[in-house]
Amino acid sequence: MAKFSKKRGKGTPAISTASLPDIIFMLLFFFMVATVMRDASLKINVNTPVATELTKIKDKSLVNNIYIGKPVAQYQNLYGTSPILQLGDKCVRKDAIEREIPLFLEQHKLKVPESRHPMIYSSIKADGKVTMGIIQDLKTALRKANQLKINYSAKPRAEG
């Protein structure tokens, strides 16, 4: 019996787990910071163009995103292959832009305090291959809805 307990005492001590919470918290913080929340999953392909004269979008709650592009393969039998708009999680065909844009803007305005309404702007995230026709229709609809502040979303270009 004495032999037994002696053997157990000589074994290597357990690895300290005191720092485990720290590591877990570190990972937690890292992912909290690095994760970008996406409010809707995209049903269309969007590859924004590159540009140099960019302005940062400061307050995300003031921005409504309008995506334009061709539907991804799994939605092509539903929406066709020509470019469409995506507002939130709703897909809008070109001929319905004029009707849907004011609705979408109003829905977004409800989430913003009234004093900040003039600061709202629309971020147009359009695929580079889309032609200007649909963009022009969107611009006209935005102008009619009196949403004049817009932002053509683009990727920064590395320039020396």
């Binding site: 004269e53 960019l54 611009k139 817009i150």
Partner: peptide, 22 residues
């Protein structure tokens, strides 16, 4: 943690700002 906080660039929304005419 601090190292990663400082070095990670969070994907930021950038774009060309335009003011449409009424």
């Amino acid at each position: 943690l601090i190292f990663f906080l400082v070095t990670t660039t969070i994907a930021q929304d950038k774009g060309i700002q335009v003011l449409l005419p009424p």
